[in-house]
């Protein structure tokens, strides 16, 4: 399991735009880098990130080899109703990780 740092407000007012930040530990090996012995390391990257709010996608991203290790994504969402945010990263070599956070929306 990769380590994850998620910044999600626990509560928000209805209609508020909340900022969400997601940082995950991953080498993002490009597949182009030769190591000290000249052998090119096979590609190992996260390909896709999806954030859903009670099943509805609020943000998604496709990641590519030029993206730095430990990718950090920051985005916003409109708080309409209390719900569970699910963060899912999927990538090469069967990499799959899911985290959830609860957001309570008040009037």
């Amino acid at each position: 399991m990769a380590r994850v740092l998620l910044q999600v407000p626990a509560t928000a007012r209805r209609g508020e735009v909340i900022e969400i930040r997601a940082l995950i530990q991953h080498p993002m090996e490009t597949g182009f880098r030769p190591d000290a012995s000249g052998v090119v390391a096979p590609r190992d990257i996260i390909r896709r990130f999806v954030c859903t709010w009670d099943g509805e996608t609020v943000f998604s991203a496709e990641l590519h080899p030029a993206i730095a290790a430990n990718p950090y994504l920051s985005f916003t969402a409109l708080a309409t109703a209390s719900g569970t945010l699910e963060f899912a990263w999927t990538g090469d070599n069967g990499f799959a990780q899911t985290e959830t956070r609860r957001v309570t929306v008040t009037e």
Partner: peptide
């Protein structure tokens, strides 16, 4: 300065 953005904190968590 932000522990949620500092990638070094991933290692500290580990």
């Amino acid at each position: 300065q932000n522990d949620m953005a500092n990638p070094g904190m991933l290692w500290a968590l580990e």
